[in-house]
């Protein structure tokens, strides 16, 4: 294991009870402090792999190492952002965001204070006492992100966080999220099926092959973000090349 990898996958395999082989021989080192994307054809086991890293599903074979130790389940070093937000419908935004701290037994005043800070950072100030059903999809996912940030895990796992959010909201949210993660030194592992999203957001793109999923290629977009606004990046030659490379790679699995 190299010094800067924070999550290491060692020969991960997953066979479902139904006999379907979702993953086979997945080996990978996720570098610390980077945003890595898992991308692949639908049904390639991206989400399964992410849930295995999160400790929510057990691998059939192989091991996941986090910070130099094999994991046996979920842990405070990893926070999860869910595709369908997974917010408690009966709880206010404030309580939803502070729920991780509530489960850890942090006193009410303290956890609400922390939660308020992150609610502000994700841009939902003023919605603290609203309920999830009063918010739009994009806002709900901001709540999900704030909840993941409050528990202060080093690693944030995101399962297609923008897939239930409409296109226009998504672009804005992607930019906001990159801003938010900047200078926080979080390691983010991100599952998506959107090629553009992967190319735009990632430091590292891990392409998975069709079922059973395995790492087929690793792409480092290497787009220089400094001083550029989002629209410039979307016109950057490197960005367009990356999109093209991924598309050519994935096209094989669609026929």
């Amino acid at each position: 294991m190299s010094v800067d990898s924070v999550v290491t996958l060692k020969n991960i395999g997953k066979i479902y009870d139904t006999g379907v082989e979702a993953l086979k021989g997945v080996n990978f080192d996720f570098p610390v402090g980077k945003l890595s994307t898992l991308l692949g054809p639908s049904g390639c086991g991206k989400t399964t792999l992410l849930k295995i890293i999160g400790g929510l599903i057990d691998a059939t074979s192989g091991e996941v190492w986090v910070n130099g130790k094999p994991i046996t389940g979920p842990g405070p070093d990893r926070a999860f952002v869910f595709q369908d937000f997974a917010l408690l419908p009966w709880a206010t935004i404030l309580r939803n965001v502070s729920f991780g701290l509530e489960l850890r037994g942090v006193p009410k005043e303290e956890r609400f204070e922390i939660a308020r800070k992150y609610i502000r950072e994700v841009g939902l100030e003023g919605f603290e006492s609203n309920f999830p059903h009063q918010l739009s999809g994009g806002m709900r996912q901001r709540v999900g992100l704030a909840r993941a940030l409050t528990v202060d895990a080093d690693i944030i796992l995101m399962d297609e966080p923008f897939s239930s959010v409409d296109e226009q909201t998504r672009r804005k949210f992607q930019e906001d999220m990159l801003d938010l993660l900047q200078n926080r030194h979080k390691t983010v592992i991100f599952v998506t099926h959107s090629i553009e999203e992967a190319a735009y957001m990632s430091d590292l793109i891990v392409l998975l092959s069709a079922r059973p999923g395995a790492v087929s290629q690793v792409i480092r977009p290497g787009i220089d973000r400094s001083g550029k606004c989002a629209d410039d990046i979307r016109r950057d030659k490197k960005y367009l090349d990356v999109v093209d490379t991924i598309w050519r790679e994935l096209k094989v699995y669609l026929c």
Partner: peptide
């Protein structure tokens, strides 16, 4: 909701 259960699990409930 299965994802609420997973959410609880991931937050160490």
């Amino acid at each position: 909701d299965r994802s609420l259960v997973e959410m609880g699990k991931s937050l160490g409930a």
